[in-house]
Amino acid sequence: MKKLFVLIMGLLMLPMVARAENPAIDFVNRVTDDIINNVLTADVSKEEKLSRFRAEFTKALDLKNIGQFVLGIYWRKATPTEKDEFLKAFTDLTTKSWADRFDSYQGQKIVFTGVRNAERNQFYVDSTIQNNPPVEVTWRLKQKDNTYRIIDIIVEGVPMAMSYRNEYSAFLQSHGGSIRALTEELKNKSDNFKWSEKKE
């Protein structure tokens, strides 16, 4: 019954999607707008940009949830201290990685093409970045108490959370499952982060 309700609601929402009145789309739209206007195109120093990006990014993404997911089977085996330290290092590196990726922004428009419901208060917001060639990006959201957080970014069908999970499980397998070693490696990557040169 609940599924039927969700389905009907989904169908009812379809016409609204085009007018971008869906709250999930609004949320992603606001996040990307904020990042573009307050960070990417703002005339401030590189350090200020990074700290602003970090504020927006950590607010919009549920990095604790993501960090938990990406450790997969190893999360259960970790001690509370290991979890905290991993999450901190993961947040640091992920923020830099995405700040760097967003930094290649050159005014492309983001068009929202639809929203799909998933189970457990989750939504997929589909969008196209009008690049040449265009890039399909799906934002996976989780709703809680009327607020949304991003739990995954799916670029051209590749869920980032899944990529991280596979990457980390490979690293952990070759390092005897040591979360400490992974955390050290993430810190190391983050401390020595090489920023991409801006094109043109």
Binding site: L93, S97, D100, E156, G157, V158, P159, M162, S163, N166, E167, Y168, S169, A170, F171, S174, L182, E185, L186, K189, F193, K194
Partner: peptide, 20 residues
């Protein structure tokens, strides 16, 4: 630059993309 095991990341991305 970003991956702790770029071989595994490439494998994961390749497989996800094919699946899609």
């Amino acid at each position: 630059k970003n991956s702790t095991d770029s071989y595994a990341t490439m494998r994961s991305m390749y497989q996800q993309n094919c699946q899609k």
